[in-house]
Design a protein around this nucleic acid. Structure first.
Length: 296
DNA sequence: GTATACAGCGATATTACATCA
DNA sequence: CGTGATGTAATATCGCTGTAT
């Protein structure tokens, strides 16, 4: 994973929740690799920029309003490889079977990255088929989820293929405009509301994961800084002890003081910036103070 | 140009259910 | 088999934004 953190130079940590003002629903998916596993996301190293690769293929091009959505790649690009169909699906179910003339699963489909037919998916599931059928007939939108016998909602489990299809769509676009929503719903034989809910939940999951990663990163930062602080405190104590026991620099003639070009400190000798220790820096500071005293 | 009502949408919290160990 | 943990679909609510009046 690419890391862009520089605690010394960067005033701002690359945390999504710090970059976002308030309402931005999703982290910006940048500088990440594809195919990161959750194991890798939970890595214990102190690697910085923790930007989850939750949308590996595309940057987020979020538009606050459907009317301003950017062109939709998966509405215009040719379909990707045809996915394996659900083996549990009725073989007789074809796209044409459910096509009303505005088929979205044709090769020139304006919907899917890969052709797939889910028309029989939910009907295979005796428990959920009726509900989905009803919803797909346009009856169910917000607030009308009870099934026909008035019972409470039944939890629908989307099939693997449906989930995969939605995931692919989500990679292309994390939000849907109404047209996309309808197209996806038709393609998956789900209600537009279900598609909408799925995307809402998916965004929430994405954000949650990113938050977890951000927290983990902050935790590591805190630990690192604590350790650094501890080390510096210890060093300071040593330097104070050194000052009281060995004030050798006070005896140096002022004419031997020079300015180190690399670190811009007054020193008795040009210091090696890379190997300069804090102790020598301390001595330099003392010498600088002495030089200032002499000049004034 | 401004104020108001309304609709649509996304974010978020929560609930309900399915699945698994 | 019962149970708790976990994942996720679905619901409820709120706030924001654009639009019509």
């Amino acid at each position: 994973m690419e890391l862009a953190l520089s605690l010394g130079d960067t005033p701002k940590l690359p945390l999504s929740f710090l970059d976002k003002p308030n309402k931005d629903p999703l982290p910006s998916f940048f500088s990440t690799q594809q195919g990161k596993t959750s194991e890798e996301e939970k890595r214990g190293s102190s690697d910085p920029p923790i930007q989850l690769d939750l949308l590996p293929f595309t940057p987020v091009l979020r538009s606050p309003h459907p009317s301003s959505h950017l062109p939709i790649p998966w509405l215009t690009q040719p379909c990707g490889p045809v996915r394996e169909l659900d083996v549990n699906r009725f073989p007789a179910a074809t796209t044409e079977d459910v096509d009303d003339g505005t088929s979205l699963s044709s090769p020139s489909s304006s919907v899917s990255p890969f052709a797939m037919d889910f028309s029989m998916r939910n009907n295979n599931n005796a428990e959920y088929g009726g509900r989905n059928k009803r919803e797909n007939e346009g009856e169910a939108e917000r607030g009308s989820d009870d099934d026909e016998n008035g019972s409470t909602r039944k939890k629908l489990r989307l099939s693997k293929d449906q989930s995969a299809f939605l995931e692919e769509s989500f990679k292309e676009h994390t939000t849907l405009n109404p047209k996309q929503k309808l197209a996806l719903a038709k393609q998956l034989n789900l209600s537009p509301r279900q598609v909408e809910v799925w995307f809402q939940n998916r965004r929430a999951r994405t954000k949650l994961k990113q938050t977890e990663v951000d927290c983990e990163y902050l935790k590591r930062c805190c630990e690192t800084l604590t350790e650094e602080n501890r080390r510096l405190q210890k060093e300071l104590q040593e330097l104070r002890a050194l000052k009281t026991t060995q004030p050798f620099y006070m005896q140096l003639p002022a004419t031997t003081l020079t300015m180190c070009p690399s670190c811009e400190r007054v020193a008795t000798n040009p210091c090696n910036n890379q190997t300069n220790t804090n102790k020598s820096r301390f001595s330099n500071a003392q010498a600088q103070a002495q030089a200032h005293q002499i000049s004034s």
